[in-house]
Design a binder for these strands. Structure first.
Lengths: 147, 147
DNA sequence: GATTATATATAAGCGCGCTTAACTATTCAG
DNA sequence: CTGAATAGTTAAGCGCGCTTATATATAATC
């Protein structure tokens, strides 16, 4: 059993490195794509959940339905989101990423993947195997503890 | 040697999970703290580099010096940053985090650490050890390949 | 020492994302 | 069937972060 202190320290260091790097790239991506923090979060949420109504996104982000509606509207105009009536409850508009939207948001994840690949390509196969095992564990755990 | 495809897939999945979660918390943190994307990036950069001049931050973020100056000014007023003349070149104002600023930005990293701890606390000691090893490798690699 | 370049600050103005409030359409409850 | 609740849109207005342009102070160049 690893010491709790050491464990926390390692997680914290990794969080720091990962976030420092991704926060910066996040800003650049926003500038290049012209998307806001809320719009990017909306797309990530839809990428993650597949499809959902507008109010759920408002709740997820902590902004008003009006703000979400406006953000979504611009995304639809840009061709990144599709919006269709839910036949079960016609008040609800189900949102989902278009292929174009999916491709765009995947760029964000992919640039992070490339960065990590750059970090690992000088490591030994054993070390790379360790990283695969660890990230697989973490990713699986994250999917299990989801809201 | 792990297959390249499998490796990329694992990295990509982890990037997706980590970013989905941290982008959302990032937005909430911005709202609670009243800080902008640029201000948070500025603080992360200073946390990372220790101390640097204003123009370097502008370059890092891809915004004008005027914008950086304004952002920094608000951070100084909030007591999160210190600004002092560089004795070597008195045109330069060296910026650094105050204790208060450091404490605040550490909350961002710490909430990510807590999230990962939550993901790992049901794993076996062996699995936890694997994660420690992997993240240590990644963090070290990141520090080596730094600009 | 005069000129030019650099580092930062300040000012004016624009665009945009947010909020509240008002409105439409649909569903639910009695 | 009527009234209340819910999902989303639209409109008006505010605050803020960005840009360009201008100003100031210091440093480097000749």
């Amino acid at each position: 059993m690893p010491s709790t202190e050491r464990f926390s320290e390692v997680l914290r260091d990794w969080a720091q490195v990962f976030m420092h790097r991704s926060a910066r790239d996040f800003k650049h991506f926003m500038d290049e794509s012209g998307l806001s923090v809320s719009q990017l979060n909306t797309m990530m949420r839809l990428y993650h959940k597949g499809e959902c109504g507008l109010s759920e996104i408002s709740g997820h982000l902590g902004i008003s339905n009006a703000a979400t509606s406006q953000a979504v509207d611009r995304l639809v105009q840009m061709g990144l989101l599709g919006r269709r009536e839910d036949p079960q409850d016609r008040r609800v508009k189900q949102l989902e990423l278009t292929d174009q939207g999916r491709t765009l948001i995947e760029k964000v994840f992919d640039s992070r993947r490339q960065w990590m690949e750059g970090l690992t390509d000088t490591l030994t196969p054993d070390q790379q195997e360790t990283i695969i095992d660890a990230l697989t564990l973490l990713t699986r755990a994250a999917h299990n503890t989801e809201d």
